[in-house]
Design a binder for these strands. Sequence first.
DNA 1: CGTTTTTTCATGCGACTGCATGATAACCGT
DNA 2: ACGGTTATCATGCAGTCGCATGAAAAAACG
Lengths: 197, 197
Amino acid sequence: MPKQVDHEQRRRLLAEAVFTVIGTRGFEAVSLRDVAEQAGVSMGTVQYYFPTKQEMLLFALAHMRERVLARLQAAVAALPDPTRRDLVRAATAVMLPVDAPGREEACVNIAFFSAATVTPAYAEQLRDGYGRILTVSVANFREAARRGELRDGVDPDREAPALYFLTQGLVGPVLIGLYRPEEALALVDAQLDRVFR
Amino acid sequence: MPKQVDHEQRRRLLAEAVFTVIGTRGFEAVSLRDVAEQAGVSMGTVQYYFPTKQEMLLFALAHMRERVLARLQAAVAALPDPTRRDLVRAATAVMLPVDAPGREEACVNIAFFSAATVTPAYAEQLRDGYGRILTVSVANFREAARRGELRDGVDPDREAPALYFLTQGLVGPVLIGLYRPEEALALVDAQLDRVFR
DNA sequence: CGTTTTTTCATGCGACTGCATGATAACCGT
DNA sequence: ACGGTTATCATGCAGTCGCATGAAAAAACG
């Protein structure tokens, strides 16, 4: 069996196991033994692919970014002939925990966010990831403005971050059951109505 | 020394120690020994006031709510002859991690938020706390609307949650250094400009 | 086919965890 | 002044943690 395994694929598998553990038992419950059991391998195997727990979690964080990005691109690609507003709305819906994978991703993200407040390596990863998404969002809004799809007097450089952070602020309340996903989406739609023509 | 100690005060002291530990070493690093050392007492004392670690953390979460509320009321009381907009802005500034205590509170809050995704007791506390603040905020906006301080066509029941969740969404990015506090406040001010007359 | 390399596993170790226990000391009421 | 209550502490215990080690198994290569 050895020699012909894809190391990166194996690492991704373990990262997914990390997500499951975080999503079901929480970040603090992540142990090498739990991850191994969740992935269906022995603890030694986990150690074989990650020299340390820290590196495992760091890789998991990086992999999470890729997973969110993939879901985002898939959601965008699923739209036939989308308007700029459709794109923005689809991207927003991906961020919100509306379905099972979205909820797991949100749980994992908030866990890493919390950990990032005391672990600079996580903070750096998150800054980069969120910064990129924000940049794309701003570019999207600018393009919408150029095409005249925005209402008069709407500043794309202001509304793009505003919508983005509104979305981020809705994630937590939805996760703890204070808001239902439909309510969150309704709030986003109301915001879109105010910005788009 | 015994017999005349205020049990609640002692618990609050320990809760503050919990905050410091969470703020400096993270939620997962909270151990009875760390909390005891941070508070300058022995581990047995911590056990004396809290039968279990879970109850200690639950009390800490409740105390955090009171602390935020106290800071909020203090900030509001410090305003001489405030307009409705001043009140909203002051409350928003309290939520954002602009100063040291605000930052610690935000770190602790996000930590409990993360834990709440797998611990229903935390989720319930947070729902109640955030729900209350949201209710007050909506009432504030309605009063502003009644007084005619809002721009035409602004729905207070929509803008109050929108501003609130925008604020919540800004907390994380400020914590990890993606946004500076001034930038976050500028975004809030822009939103206020759009809502208030 | 034998050997080497790659992968997986089981086990052990010291450190740390939450919690239980018994001792010690400090104040109270009388 | 002196038992009794209250508060604090030091220590012990079973369990778990991350990590290190060495063996076993399975393909790759000569």
